[in-house]
Design a protein around this nucleic acid. Structure first.
Lengths: 241, 241
DNA sequence: CGAGATTTTGAATTGGGTCAAGTTATGTGG
DNA sequence: CCACATAACTTGACCCAATTCAAAATCTCG
């Protein structure tokens, strides 16, 4: 598959803090939930283009995206940069920084977004006390590893159109999980950003979009996409040589 | 850089269990170390080609490689497969399985190897009691995320020779960290496996080796490699277009 | 409405893939 | 320990998917 189906995440009930929604385990006691709410008390909002953190920043917190979306990208010293992911509401970012206490990549808002700060020290303390939370945190980190390995597979062994198909299907699944349309959505990223993420040039991405449209698989108008035939899009990916 | 320098890991003193060597935090009390030793009591040995776990296996434990080395690979339903990493002594594998309780990839011994099993439930229990261990576990998982993102950068934006240079330098650093020669070593993997890891065909890998040799940067004889000029190898990587 | 950014499309180029043949290792059984 | 078979590696010639360069079209937003 590559870009594996995002493991279905619990839709939560985290009382005051809606943002921890998809991110935190569900079956906690009331008092445990209160502790979580305290943990995630600080919210911040961002406009398109704002940095949530930059490469080199000191690590203090993970961030739960409450609304909106972000991209994360790595900077290579020689100026190359690559988008490593597009994150949407309910997802957690900043996991890469735990390793060295320094953020290894940067996170940029793709649109107006609200983010909930989760101080990592406190998160660790809490997860020592609430084993379910501990396990959930581990699952979140592991899921990120699996996701990244899916992208490695994509980058290492798929051709341009297969990559774009996998990308669109992944978006589709993630929208569906949020009870949004799985077949009609607006892209919040440019061709250039999609290309960077998929290891392709923007022209190649554009051509692949056009080709899918010619084939009647999708309908594209710049940032707006409608998937006409999910099955054929799926079939693209398995058409290995 | 891509394939970022493996963060220097503590060289440990884990009393009876040498394998947890590089993997576990150093400054623990005697009684904490005893707990760790109990955790990692079970050792198993493997011959070249043996599976440590297969895709789909139920997840129970992480594994610390005590000696030898493994490769991990993902299987794509249509038969494609891709090597996602080569792990050597002191490294921990199996992190991808935490996410779903099912192993997402498979691990195969590259040579005679000994592995120490770390039952994950017990590891979690212990890390609730030993905050240093908790943090260390988190760092290990995060390091894996950073490593994978480095490979994404490599696969997404580097040309064939840059990829091979990055690969060789990464091996070199890891050998150096283990007090082995940074400039002379035996490859335990085939051209095909290297290619799979780097998103290249084996012929391309072979040609890149030959070209580095013509350039006087390395000396290759099939599986044996000597790096003659580390600086030039490093320079290859930054020679982006 | 207009200026700059983004996207599309075309044509030419090229890096890596494919296919094929030859060579060098490796391992097995006699 | 050698002979042979098989697997792994190298090299060459050709090809094609994706990149590059360029120009035109479209979109976005002040």
């Amino acid at each position: 598959m590559a870009l594996p189906a995002p493991a279905s995440q619990p839709k939560s009930i985290c009382s005051n803090c809606n943002l921890a929604e998809l991110c935190l385990p569900v079956d906690l006691t009331i008092s445990e939930l209160q502790l979580l709410d305290e943990l995630s008390a600080v919210k911040r909002s961002f406009s398109r283009g704002d940095y949530l953190y930059r490469s080199g920043d000191k690590f203090r917190s993970l961030f739960a995206i409450h609304s909106g979306s972000f991209k994360t990208q790595i900077l290579h010293e020689d100026g190359r940069e690559q988008v490593t992911g597009f994150q949407m509401a309910g997802e957690i970012i900043g996991l890469d920084a735990i390793s060295t206490d320094i953020h290894a990549c940067e996170a940029v808002a793709m649109e107006k977004s609200i983010v909930c700060e989760l101080p990592f020290n406190k998160l660790e303390e809490l997860s020592r006390v609430i084993p379910k939370l501990q396990r959930h945190l581990h699952k979140i980190m592991s899921r990120e590893i699996v996701r990244d390995q899916g992208i490695m597979l994509l980058l290492g062994s798929m051709r341009a159109e297969e990559r774009l198909a996998a990308f669109l299907l992944n978006l589709s699944q993630r929208y569906a999980m949020r009870d949004l349309s799985a077949t009609q959505f607006q892209l919040s990223m440019s061709r250039q950003e999609i290309g960077s993420y998929l290891g392709l040039k923007l022209e190649t991405v554009s051509r692949a979009f056009s080709h899918f449209q010619e084939e009647g698989i999708i309908l594209v108008k710049v940032r707006s996409v409608e998937i006409l035939n999910l099955a054929r899009l799926q079939a693209c990916i398995n058409s290995s040589r």
